[in-house]
């Protein structure tokens, strides 16, 4: 879904990424590599495969001539999740993608230790400017520029009648901040409470659509 954001044409994509075509730049948030492994190391039996699946999903997102990938925090989930296998999978993936990668550190990254040697990722400071955008992990507005952020894993609640209700990942656009949904395959989402001046674009995996923000619309949806 194409729309204007801070005066730039951008595309909200069904995989939860945000494409800035004129700059060949792709934004993504909350990848959480190694999350399954960090759970396993604590004795919680989570099946393996989510890190590899996340990287494969990211490869697919990069296909359309993207030259720069900007990660809005939480590339890695935790120190314990950086097992030899997960690091190996990541580095092997990195060697196959030739894009420039920028990272704004998120709260999980800060607790995950150094990036693996050979990551070839440029860490940029919180609030770094790219065109009209400011890059952050936590979605706090700034005096100037439109903030792109993650951290919240935003989801929008669709309540159907009977016993049906579900929460789907969404982009949450407020006047000064746009929050991206979480990208990792082992991440969930939590319900947001948009106000009427906000825009919400839900992602279904195969398409993006904007939902009207009003209580009536919410309850009569489905």
């Amino acid at each position: 879904m194409r729309t204007q954001l801070a005066g730039e044409e951008v595309e909200f994509r069904p995989d939860g990424t945000l494409l800035w075509p004129s700059e060949s730049t792709l934004f993504v948030a909350d990848i959480h590599l190694g999350k399954g492994a960090s759970f396993r190391s604590k004795g919680l039996p989570v099946p393996p495969g989510s890190t590899l699946a996340t990287l494969e999903k990211l490869s697919l997102s990069l296909d359309s001539g993207v030259q720069r990938l900007i990660i809005l925090g939480d590339l890695w989930h935790a120190r314990q999740g950086k097992t030899a296998e997960a690091v190996e999978q990541f580095l092997s993936w990195r060697s196959r993608v030739s894009v420039e990668i920028l990272l704004v550190e998120g709260n999980h990254d800060r607790k995950s230790g150094q990036l693996p040697v050979g990551s070839d990722i440029l860490t940029v400071p919180d609030g770094a400017t790219v065109g009209p955008f400011r890059l952050r992990h936590e979605p706090e507005p700034m005096d100037e520029g439109h903030v792109l952020a993650g951290h919240l894993h935003p989801g929008y609640g669709l309540d159907g009648r009977g016993r049906q209700s579900m929460t789907v990942p969404c982009f949450w656009i407020t006047p000064g901040v746009t929050v991206l949904p979480s990208f990792g395959t082992f991440t969930g989402c939590s319900r947001i409470r948009p106000s009427e001046s906000d825009r919400v674009i839900v992602t279904t995996g195969s398409e993006c659509r904007e939902v009207p923000i009003s209580r009536l619309a919410e309850s009569s949806f489905c």
């Binding site: 396993r40 039996p45 495969g49 097992t83």
Partner: peptide
């Protein structure tokens, strides 16, 4: 942790 975790030595319960 079940069949799928057979090969995961980091898993311990």
């Amino acid at each position: 942790g079940g069949e799928s975790l057979r090969a995961y030595p980091e898993y311990r319960r």
